[in-house]
Design a binder for these strands. Structure first.
Lengths: 225, 225
DNA sequence: GAGTAGTGTTACTGACCGGTAACACTTTAA
DNA sequence: TTAAAGTGTTACCGGTCAGTAACACTACTC
């Protein structure tokens, strides 16, 4: 059960306050991101975070009212990074939702299979936060709802006959990849995600007359439900 | 962060050792199952388990050498139950792997959408056990590998052209449903799992000449490891 | 130069953690 | 009947947890 061994190197170097021009709050948040993601929420104490960030517990509590609030802030921060990544992944194929979905999943596979990946911060966090009233839960539920919405929208734009079903299926796929990553290293079931997406896309998007290459341009108001 | 509130009712009733004819070890293991599944591994202490099981910490340590070993045993126990459920779900359709897969997923959806479901014990556990050497990790990895093997075997028996790909895709689907269950209550993306399976089955199983109904008969051999 | 905001340091609280020692009692089996 | 196995009880260990008090110092701003 002793997850975090004492791997902390000297957070600040020899002389006091030499390098760290960054605000304590930012250093703490950044350290927390790494530690929470690697070891989990409950496994990491505020003292460990503070010391790894080159400061101490007292300064920690000047920046954050509680550990729970830090967790919530950590999740918000992860969320910002996540959507930046997402937008960057689909940007090159603007106007072609089908290729956007393919690119998204290709990108997601490379990222999630990398060494050191521990899947999805939100998925992992929600496992450790069963309490309905934890400040982090709102962030998680909002994030996952947004993810679902975006996948449904992309599915709709791609011309799926049942965009809600396709979007949700893609979400299951993605979340499954995140989760299995934790038990399978890199050669797990996630390897087939790219192929699976294409199979599902083919099954859900009705074939069009072979004139245009892309099924539809943007703004396709075609959902039915 | 105070996950477990003091909800413990009087574990044993008024008179000492009145009802509990069951061995302490079994009571502890049973209690641990409920508590670990509901609140998580780290959130539940051995004292809470012992007391909820109507005994005390000392008796706990006479049955289990450590909390970590209890966790491993808890996971083994969950595994036994899981495969019992699995076998029962596919039994009615022995010989028709395609319908077995459909039945499995239908069954899985009902179960996972139930009130009080917290997804998969193994998926949740692995999030809390990042250490490679925890005795519980072996159990988890074995379980997930077995799951992958079974899904691939069923896919093969169903006549899939690429059974590894289909099996892995189904695994992603299943795992995704387990994970999303934690952020979405019951109306989440998992609702489409049944439909998704059928779509994938159709896409992966080449149409046969409409003479025989079942693609293959099969003696459902257990997968290897 | 003065004031203030940010930061570091040490020491502390009360609660809980996993795990153990020692001893008394009850149930089971030979 | 007797011995052994199983169980309950109380008190304890060292360690860690989240969170706070009090005080000294630095750096930036007016």
């Amino acid at each position: 059960m002793n997850t975090m061994s004492k791997t902390l190197s000297t957070g600040s170097d020899t002389s006091a306050a030499a390098v760290p021009k960054v605000r304590v709050r930012d250093r703490i948040l950044d350290t927390a991101r790494g530690l929470f993601y690697r070891y989990g929420l409950r496994a990491v104490g505020v003292e460990a975070i503070a010391s790894e960030a080159g400061t101490n517990k007292m300064s920690f509590y000047r920046c954050f009212p509680s550990k729970d609030e830090l967790i919530a802030e950590y999740l918000r921060e992860q969320g910002r990074g996540y959507w930046d990544w997402w937008d960057a992944a689909i940007a090159p194929h603007a106007g072609d939702a089908r290729r956007q979905l393919e690119a998204l999943f290709d990108n997601y596979m490379t990222l999630t299979c990398k060494d050191g990946s521990r899947g999805c911060s939100f998925g992992n966090a929600v496992v450790e936060l069963p309490e309905g009233d934890h400040p982090g839960r709102r962030v998680i539920e909002q994030h996952k709802a947004e993810m679902r919405g975006r996948l449904r929208t992309l599915s709709s734009e791609a011309g799926a006959s049942d965009p809600e079903a396709l979007g949700d299926t893609l979400m299951l796929l993605m979340e499954g990849g995140y989760l299995t990553r934790l038990s399978f290293c890199s050669q797990g079931p996630i390897s087939v995600a790219g192929k699976a997406v294409r199979t599902l896309l083919n099954a859900h998007i009705p074939a069009v007359a072979p004139t245009a290459k892309t099924p539809r341009a943007a703004s396709p108001k075609r959902s039915k439900a």
